[in-house]
Nucleic acid binder design. Structure first.
Lengths: 247, 247
DNA sequence: CGAGCACTTGATCGCTTTCAATAGCTGTGG
DNA sequence: CCACAGCTATTGAAAGCGATCAAGTGCTCG
């Protein structure tokens, strides 16, 4: 037991991640069954949600906040292998333990399902396992995109890549995708950024300062980032996306 | 059209990857349906199987040989993001194009399914999509393990990690897992190893030579590797596996 | 025998790490 | 109110690892 349970339990139909989480395809009776086996759980920033190699008795979705998956070597080197934002799924059906530590990087609310009933439901309702397959394929794509970042990009490009990813997934941005300017809060400390990027925190700090000095980003405090020109940031990231201007 | 079709078409029941591929759970009638929509295709070493962003008209399994998934930046830097060994699945149901180049690194035989009929079957037979989910989750684990290698390991550890992975998945090893000594052929050029490890080919060559000099591996020719002590190699890889000796 | 290719080895360069000092912020307690 | 601890972040100087540039080796195949 490493966290108090907190019963906020809104209806699934009011849930902010309803249309993107593992339950996205469920309706009516299926949703009612999920509603029966679900419960909410809150974690404070810094708390461990699941220890690697621990038995997991639940799976679930991040409702709000940011969590991270990290892998560690015995000498202390650690690598973050996944960033879990709202609607992302935690846990692996069909396997006992987690392969990674799952940690709350900000305060987190999770919608949990007890593992056994969830696995039973998966076997019986194709909507859930199809959605989970789709989400897993997306995560695999994201992991592979990240392999390019880790293996081939420079420190400066790595920082720009991370900022682009966070900007792209920030809910505040989705509303106004037409605008070139973007602003968001960094949900990660410099050390967490370093663990994600395979760098040291000093290098992260230096490269953030360099991007600021060059006008690619503007910092308001340590954590609030303004990107005056998103295309410029993508260019710095080494992505050939071209801002979507085809032809 | 970039490859001649070659009709070797054995029965699925005689197939060497029958018990590990996406079809592993299918029996009887399901297997017959698959048999109807499948065809074999051969690729020579070096040939591109699928170009990134190309429309894919098939998905399939590697029957024999080794293929690789690679991602490239416009300036030529490339990163291998997956190594496809026999039984591994190629293609993403539900999406038009591939996000990566798929290349044959040795001569490859693929068991292909036309995409539309395969997707239809997925919707109708849970055995296939459940197996695909399981395989995708395994690939995600592998990708994340690789992120630790790319982000945090030294060049020497990276080489040792790659050799361990190849040794572990080599079919010749599975027969005698008790023995500490292991031998296998490298299916990759130094350049391909470099692309997998996020290194240059010169660094790969130097570190392979160093591992040879230190007696961790013995080379017979450029491509045949003998590992006298697998535990030693795992130690060099920085894995805490401990060879399985608990306590 | 020479072209082409995969690989090895050497010398030097430069980016990121490492080690170290300092700044800014927040909360605590005398 | 100020002093101080504890934490996150910044910045500087030096060291080290892998990249880059450059030959050179050994093999296969025409």
């Amino acid at each position: 037991m490493n966290a108090p349970s907190k019963s906020i339990a809104p209806n699934c139909s009011d849930c902010p991640i309803r249309h993107r989480a593992v339950c996205a395809r469920c309706e009516g009776e299926e949703l009612e069954r999920l509603e029966e086996i679900k419960y909410y759980r809150s974690f404070e920033a810094g708390q461990t949600i699941i220890w690697s190699n621990d038995k997991m008795d639940f799976v679930g979705s991040v409702v709000s906040g940011v969590a991270s998956l990290t892998q560690a070597m015995e000498d202390g080197r650690t690598q973050m292998v996944g960033l879990l934002l709202p609607s992302d799924f935690v846990g692996r059906p069909g396997r006992e333990g987690s392969a990674y530590d799952v940690t709350a990087t900000t305060d987190v609310v999770m919608c949990c399902f007890r593992k056994k009933p969830f696995e039973k439901m998966m076997r019986e309702t194709p909507h859930i396992s199809h959605r989970l397959l789709e989400m897993t394929l997306d995560e695999l794509d994201a992991a592979r995109e990240w392999m390019l970042v880790l293996g081939r990009k420079t420190a400066r490009e790595k920082i720009a890549s991370l900022l682009s990813i966070i900007a792209r997934r920030d809910p505040a941005q989705v509303a106004q995708p037409a605008s070139k300017a973007v602003a968001f809060d960094l949900p990660l400390t410099r050390e967490a950024m370093a663990d994600y990027l395979g760098l040291t925190l000093e290098t992260v700090s230096r490269q953030v300062s360099a991007l600021k000095r060059d006008g690619v980003i503007v910092l308001e405090g340590k954590r609030h980032v303004v990107v005056p020109d998103m295309d410029r940031l993508l260019e710095e990231a080494g992505d050939d996306s071209d801002g979507g201007h085809l032809i």
